[in-house]
Design a binder for these strands. Sequence first.
DNA 1: CAGGTAGTACTACCAAAGTAGTATTTCCGT
DNA 2: ACGGAAATACTACTTTGGTAGTACTACCTG
Lengths: 127, 127
Amino acid sequence: MERLGDLQLRILRVLWQHGECTVAQVQQHLAGEQSRVLAYTTVATMLRKMEARGLVRHRSQGRRFLYQATVSDEQVSQRLAGYLLDRLFEGSLAQMVNHLLEHRQVDPQELDRLEELIRRKKGESGT
Amino acid sequence: MERLGDLQLRILRVLWQHGECTVAQVQQHLAGEQSRVLAYTTVATMLRKMEARGLVRHRSQGRRFLYQATVSDEQVSQRLAGYLLDRLFEGSLAQMVNHLLEHRQVDPQELDRLEELIRRKKGESGT
DNA sequence: CAGGTAGTACTACCAAAGTAGTATTTCCGT
DNA sequence: ACGGAAATACTACTTTGGTAGTACTACCTG
């Protein structure tokens, strides 16, 4: 579950968000995003490849397949975020946050939430 | 400057850290990390491919090439972190931090630094 | 000066992602 | 019952990353 392509990630997001989907549904949800419409077979092929890699699984409903993710949002997020953290910020969360605070607009509410998170985290580790 | 392979990133990191390098130097620094030693030509080829993509450039020193990165640490970090943030955390920094706080060990010092960062950020936006 | 060494150039190959066409099957509606 | 629609299976092709061998060249050293 190392490297994850762009389309693969988009498909996983669809499945996380909508649960079991037919190929057609996945295709529609992908199209619902900004991007251009992918051929039905493109989506189907990608799903088959992802199944071979263990990222999704399917069951049959009539002659149609219902796909669902076998990896969780959590798992993937952790893996990818950890990857980035280690490779670009020497594993330092503070360094990463610092970077993002400097280079992206951050909603003031976000800052409040962040502050709260840290307070809470400090509390629990102190206990 | 979208997708960045693993080796490519490692090479960039070497160049960011050490500045201009010959192929041999890049190879050595890569070997200095944990991983197995790559063939000299592997490194050379990768550098040539990266130059074609505009990630690095070279100048000649005698018959030897000195490579240097043309993209900055900043740029790459921003791009990759932003990518992840948008794709997995709906652009919410707090969500990402929350996730990382839950799933990784975080040094208490890191929490302090984080707190400080946020305080500072709030201060400056308030002004 | 000759021969090894260090350098680059070129070529090749594999795997994976992404994209999609064609073939085959099956189901459903009229 | 039949024809078209819908579904999956199979095949194919392109690009990119990663890895490295071979060929060619030039330099330096004894």
